[in-house]
Amino acid sequence: MAKTVVQEFTKGLWAEIPPFRLVLGLCPVLAVTKTVENGVGMGIATTFVLVCSNVLISLLRSTIPKQVRIACFIVVIATFVTVVELVMQAFAYPLFLKLGIFIPLIVVNCIVLGRAEAFAAKNGVVASFADGLGIGIGFTLSLTALAIFREILGSGTFTIPISSVSIPVFGPGFEPFTFMVEAPGAFVCLGLMLCIMNMLGKK
């Protein structure tokens, strides 16, 4: 276990990138990646929760008794998710309306609990911070990539995050490939991207 902090960080960006390598937390991935804006928003919210819960759980890892650790982890995670939810309502209400139920659902996102259980509960604060940040950024990147792919093909637009401006990509004659913005399309996209990543990884 002689990994450096940098390695803990970078593993989240490729070697263990969720949801492609770490195939967890698919529910929000499939549901929110209809537009780039939603994908990025969800990614940032999850990253915040991941980093905060990883750091706190790592700090408290000797205090938390083994028998009730899952309950404690969930309390920590749920607290941060509620903070995110309130802050998002206060400062990015339109985004909150679009993401809706998927923000509170970060509580049960397996990535967050998975990192807490598999990493933060066994490692130091700095390593846990790097791990959370790496996995979070990796998750955001994957969501963004998936969302770009789906939005451009499915609606023919590209929504710039934060500004909510939709730019038509193909011009007025484009007939949207609506399959891509529906749930089955998300599965197909995810599968194709996983396939491409595996092919690249083999070389």
């Binding site: 938390i64 009730v68 309950a71 404690c72 309390v75 607290t79 509620t82 309130l86 802050v87 206060a90």
Partner: peptide, 25 residues
């Protein structure tokens, strides 16, 4: 006691955040 403490701290923190953001929300 550990779980109780966790829940209390969490509840307190959320109450603070909520009262801080309520008006804006």
């Amino acid at each position: 006691v550990v779980v109780l403490l966790f829940s209390c701290v969490s509840g307190g923190l959320l109450a603070v955040v909520r009262s801080g953001t309520q008006e804006r929300i």
